[in-house]
């Protein structure tokens, strides 16, 4: 019984991280209909940014989140304006996808050259502390990361719900022409969406860097996980990303405990496939497009 509760707790904590790591991908997919293969780069880039801040400058990873988000915001903006938007305007459905793939190749190469391909990790002073709650033990770092993840999702949610930019982004996703006729500059909206999504991807990367060891090549994993979370929960909605992330976290931890670690990914991918075949718009449906 204790083992089960412990597994569930671990699964939820891991799921929270999967959720925050997917919201940026979800936003771009929902608003621009672009499958953004640079997503994992921004996640892993956030982890390496935090590593540099911590090991070179001695800054606590949590404190490095705001400046890293600013950097990622600027990089995301530039990347969208200079490369991805021109590709989107080519009109070929996969042109944008390919461009993001090319960009990811360049970035992962630069990361590997800069940091080597060996495994890195960030362990601030409060690592390796376990909280005990009866028979259940909770890793402090994971709890902190989980809390920060929820806070970040709440911030993004408020931005989309209440700010002027958030409203314009949602409107453009619902009807690009309708928004343009209201006087919206759609290109600026797409750049803003990409920049915001990149900033939140980088923030999630810092949290991931605190919890798990990482290499440049891990970017693919985080792009694929974001894919699964978003497909499972539904495109474009934060609620969907939360639900998808938590479910996936639980499934992954339960599989690992009761079936064996080799089956974890297989079960996750099977769930992705099954969801696509049964309910392609995810459990909550698409936040932006009418349900089919």
């Amino acid at each position: 019984m204790t083992a089960l509760v412990q597994t569930l707790v671990n699964g939820l904590l891991y799921g929270g991280i999967l959720s925050i790591a997917a919201v940026g991908f979800s936003l771009i997919f929902g608003v621009m209909s672009v499958i953004n293969l640079t997503h994992g780069i921004f996640v892993i880039g956030g982890a390496y940014g935090a590593l540099v801040a911590w090991s070179v400058l001695g800054i606590d990873p949590l404190l490095s989140i705001p400046p890293l988000m600013l950097v990622a915001f600027a990089l995301g903006w530039a990347c969208q304006r200079l490369v991805i938007q021109p590709a989107v305007e080519r009109g070929n459905p996969v042109a944008a996808l390919l461009v993001t793939f090319g960009f990811a190749l360049i970035a992962v190469n630069l990361l590997t050259v800069t940091f080597s391909s060996s495994v890195r990790s960030i362990s601030p002073s409060y690592s390796f502390i376990n909280l005990r709650l009866g028979d259940i033990s909770i890793d402090l770092v994971r709890l902190v990361a989980f809390g920060c993840g929820l806070a970040l999702i709440a911030i993004l949610g408020s931005f989309l719900r209440f700010s002027r930019w958030g409203r314009v982004i949602r409107a453009t996703a619902l009807s690009e022409l309708g928004a343009r006729l209201c006087g919206v500059d759609a290109r600026a909206v797409y750049a803003m969406t990409f920049a915001v999504a990149s900033a939140f991807a980088a923030a999630s990367g810092v949290l991931i860097g605190m919890m798990l060891p990482f290499t440049p090549a891990d970017e693919v994993t985080w792009t694929v996980y974001a894919f699964i979370v978003v497909t499972l929960g539904g495109v474009g909605s934060l609620g969907g990303a939360m639900l998808g992330g938590l479910l996936l976290g639980l499934v992954s931890t339960l599989t690992q405990t009761y079936l064996g670690a080799v089956y974890t990914n297989m079960v996750m991918f099977l769930i992705l496939l099954f969801t696509l075949l049964v309910r392609p718009n995810g459990i909550l449906g698409s936040a932006f497009k009418a349900s089919r």
């Binding site: 490369v83 080519r90 042109a95 990811a104 190749l105 360049i106």
Partner: peptide, 18 residues
């Protein structure tokens, strides 16, 4: 730099020769 150059090639082809 093999990956990076491949990436540059892909981006260039998509933008220059759609």
């Amino acid at each position: 730099y093999h990956l990076a150059i491949t990436g540059v090639l892909i981006v260039a082809v998509v933008l220059v020769a759609p």
